[in-house]
């Protein structure tokens, strides 16, 4: 298992559309992928799970990936956060 902690930088946080993009991306990997936010740990492949976090801008979130494609999964999940889910130019 590998993990990385980043800060949420998109101003709306993990709202519904960003969460849908994130769960869609997570589902494209074989690895198990979890998000840890303020002590809550959820499956990143579950849209409802992500939404329960109410994860907002300026807060740290940890991405854990575990499986054959864990490196690629971690890279791409970190990237989608850093690209602010393509919602801010």
């Amino acid at each position: 298992m590998i993990k990385e902690t980043i800060e949420i930088t998109n101003k709306l946080g993990l709202h519904a559309r960003a969460s849908a993009k994130l769960s869609h991306l997570a589902n494209s990997f074989q690895s198990d992928i979890y998000l840890v936010y303020h002590g809550d740990r959820v499956n990143a492949k579950s849209l409802l799970g992500i939404l329960t976090l109410a994860a907002s801008v300026g807060n740290p979130i940890t991405i854990e990936t575990d499986g054959k494609d864990e490196k690629e999964a971690l890279n791409q999940i970190v990237n989608i956060f850093q690209s602010k889910f393509d919602e801010e130019s």
Binding site: K11, L12, G13, L14, H15, A16, S46, L48, G49, L51, T52, L53, A54, A55, S56, V57
Partner: peptide, 17 residues
């Protein structure tokens, strides 16, 4: 208030789940 919006979504998701 984006944070209140997220909190209501989270509350709804917690129930639905």
């Amino acid at each position: 208030s984006p944070i209140v919006h997220l909190q209501v979504l989270a509350a709804a998701a917690t129930l639905i789940k």
